[in-house]
Design a binder for these strands. Structure first.
Lengths: 337, 337
DNA sequence: GTTAGCACTCGCTCTTCTTGAGTGCTAATT
DNA sequence: AATTAGCACTCAAGAAGAGCGAGTGCTAAC
């Protein structure tokens, strides 16, 4: 294990490196109030390098922390930052304007994180298993134009506009709406398998051939719900950074389905992955993910992708606060919170 | 006026500059089949520089075209590029997956342009004056949770989720929906002034105090429609370009309302603005905008923002084709097209 | 009016030099 | 045994200079 002084030295190197992004030399550390000379610190640093916590970009430069060092730092001796009331107010402000849906709240939270941390934010809106179809509706909006609405119990609404070859009569419309509502109401989005849908289509088109296009659209809507999205915001913040390979970031965030899977599989409330050791994420970046829940069930996740030299001590509380608030807002029994 | 040879020289300079981005020298032009020597061309180039069509970055470099030259080129001797069937197929492909609404079509068209030209695309979705409110609806989706829908006659749907303090009875819901539909149905989005809305709110809340939050949301929805958006896509394509100031682009595209105004005010079917002479847009960029119409009335616009040395001859037909197709698709009488 | 020839300009690139921050090692000190 | 002052050494980054070469403008000949 590291003795007390080595810990302090490593801590200083890390926090200085986070602050400046430059290699940290022994003199700077000696001046930061340790009470020992630069030479002593150099000796300790050599040991820390031996142990794999520090490395030198080149001989005549200072040291920079390794991934291992960051892990240790985050786990063990990162200073704890407690959000001020002002911090909370700012974050609350971002959430305020959101609707009480996972989608909208996550959107605002992403926004907040992207702006405040100048990093990229990944968000995953998970239509939860408990979400069922509440209503299907068709509204005429013009000559042979119809809007098809699919509303789910978690408040999400999807719509598609559809142009038919013929106008539908009021009866036909009513029939369609009733039929769909009866057959789909209360069905969980998981349960709406292609087979199930095919059956409905078959039954339907026996009645009225002209409605096939409508059915197609309903199907598309249901699909939309199923692979509900993963979105990325503020990726621009990571471009043009000398320490991060833009192309790799680009590549990472463009594989939406892998991203989605990654966010879904992340375990625990808060997960931190540092890029470089493994190849899970981009070299020289850190990714902090956190899930949000609705009544105890996963409802989405949010992830902050930034440089490895992220101000973890500050950023982590931000994320925790935001996901905590969202989870609170989403839970049905507000009174309890 | 320019004599024939000078025109040819200027044309070659411009097209070469568009192709390579480098200053063009006399030798290259001499080799491009004009039948005169480099010296002759140098003489002509000196004249063209005098006239303000060319400039030299420094003494020992070739010439690059000025804004004036680009204007002249676009207006007078740009080669005409006729879209191949393959080109059209690609563009059609992008539009195919869109719904027949201005919003969706513009979105796909932006996508197409951004990907094919590697430029930034601005799009403006204008809820047209002829668009009226078709339906207002409130759907319960959970404990005290309601989705409010506003559907307009052009097929646009906006929705908000709203959490109330109390559950509403079926009668209350029905009452609200009926009342709103009766009072708002057929109203143009222009006509829905704050005053008009206030009157409805006043009348409503006399009936049922608990509905005020719902009304607020309806109001917000109406506002959403009114300043319906301007969106930017592919701005990333313009970053990291040595010839374009990223900060200026950033600044230009972040002023959404100015952008919107700019697109709305653009006259004619196709407008081309070159940045640099005036300060309307970003230095060293070109902006090509085109409106789309629905049954002859403005329904939106799309704009391509790229480097000044844009391949206008190719890009312009792209835009014209896309906006033409969109206008066709949007118009109610498809048979005529 | 056109062209060959030529001296000239000047941005690039490559090399060399200098600087200075930071190191590791050694010998003296506590 | 741990700490420290001292010193020679390393090496990236920046400055200064040399040479190259693409391109020019001018002049004199065709």
């Amino acid at each position: 294990m590291l003795d007390e002084r080595k810990k302090k030295i490593l801590g200083t190197v890390i926090s200085e490196y986070i602050r400046t992004g430059e290699p940290v030399g022994s003199k700077l550390i000696a001046d930061s109030g340790l009470g020992v000379s630069a030479a002593t610190i150099r000796n300790d640093m050599a040991v820390l390098e031996q142990l794999g916590y520090l490395e030198q970009p080149h001989t005549s430069a200072g040291r920079i922390p390794t991934y291992t060092a960051f892990s240790l730092y985050i786990d063990e001796f990162m200073p704890e930052y407690v959000l001020t009331e002002a911090d909370k107010a700012v974050l609350d402000d971002y959430l305020e304007s959101a609707e009480p849906t996972a989608e909208s709240l996550l959107e605002n939270a992403s926004h907040a994180l992207a702006e405040l941390t100048r990093c990229a934010v990944i968000r995953r809106d998970l239509v939860p298993k408990f979400s069922v179809i509440t209503k299907v509706e068709v509204v005429p909006t013009g000559k042979r134009m119809y809007v098809i609405l699919l509303i789910s119990s978690n408040g999400a609404v999807k719509n598609k506009v559809c142009r038919l070859e013929f106008d539908l009569t009021d009866e036909q419309l009513k029939f369609f709406t009733n039929y769909m509502s009866e057959n789909l109401h209360g069905i969980s989005l998981d349960e709406l398998t292609p087979e199930k849908f095919e059956k409905i289509v078959a039954a339907m088109s026996a009645y009225m051939i002209s409605m096939t296009p409508l059915l197609e659209e309903v199907k598309k809507l249901a699909d939309d719900f199923a692979d509900s999205g993963v979105a990325v915001e503020g990726e621009k913040n990571l471009l043009m950074r000398p320490d991060i390979d833009s192309a790799a970031v680009e590549n990472f965030i463009s594989h939406k389905s892998e991203l989605a899977q990654f966010l879904d599989q992340s375990f625990g409330d808060l997960q931190i992955v540092l890029g470089g050791s493994g190849e899970t994420i981009v070299q020289n970046t850190g990714l902090i993910t956190s899930k949000i829940k609705k009544n105890g069930v996963d409802a989405g996740a949010i992830g902050l992708l930034g440089p490895l030299r992220l101000d973890y001590s500050k950023v982590i509380p931000y994320i925790e606060y935001l996901t905590g608030r969202i989870t609170d807002i989403l839970s049905d029994d507000m009174e309890l919170s």
